[in-house]
């Protein structure tokens, strides 16, 4: 009797398990994706730069990854003149720390504000089973 009941219900049980797994996997996937996208889009890398007596003092802060495990790898900052030539390039490793500072000498004529700057930071991010390397543009601010 028991084996008969079991034989009748087994395919139905398999069917319901399959349906539950599909629905749960879908819900989990969407939930994880939405959270991940929200967390990553709030992340940014700030760079504050100060000129003083012919030297450049810079500070890079990677922030906004709440709840994510981050390993900042390195950063690069380029100073371009009006034509797009590189006046100065600063790059260094960040050694897994969210902050880095640098001091370097400025080029001659930096007082004339006809140059612009761009920068990037590579950050490796871990969350749950996800692991990626992000390439974040630096937001440069001057003091």
């Amino acid at each position: 009797m028991l084996s008969l009941v079991k034989r009748v219900n087994l395919p139905k049980i398999v069917f319901w398990i399959a349906l539950t797994l599909v629905v749960m996997n879908y819900t989990a996937g969407v939930f994880v994706y939405r959270n991940y996208a929200r967390k990553l889009s709030s992340a940014k890398a700030l760079c504050t730069i100060r000129f003083e007596d012919g030297s450049i003092f810079g500070k890079i802060v990677v922030e906004g990854f709440e709840g994510l495990k981050i390993h900042p790898v390195d950063y690069q900052i380029y100073f371009y003149d009006r034509r797009g030539n590189v006046l100065k390039m600063v790059s260094s490793s960040m050694f897994n720390r969210p902050e880095a500072e640098f001091v370097t000498s400025a080029w001659t004529g930096y007082e004339q504000k006809d140059w612009h700057t761009e920068g990037y930071s590579n950050v490796s991010v871990e969350w749950l089973w996800l692991k990626i390397n992000l390439y974040i543009p630096l937001e440069v601010r001057f003091e």
């Binding site: 349906l19 599909v22 879908y26 989990a28 969407v30 991940y36 996800l130």
Partner: peptide
């Protein structure tokens, strides 16, 4: 509908879902 929809999203969100 659930099955097809789950498969389409599995193609897109493969690395985010546990299975």
């Amino acid at each position: 509908i659930i099955a097809y929809h789950a498969v389409v999203f599995e193609l897109l969100l493969n690395e985010f879902s546990p299975l």
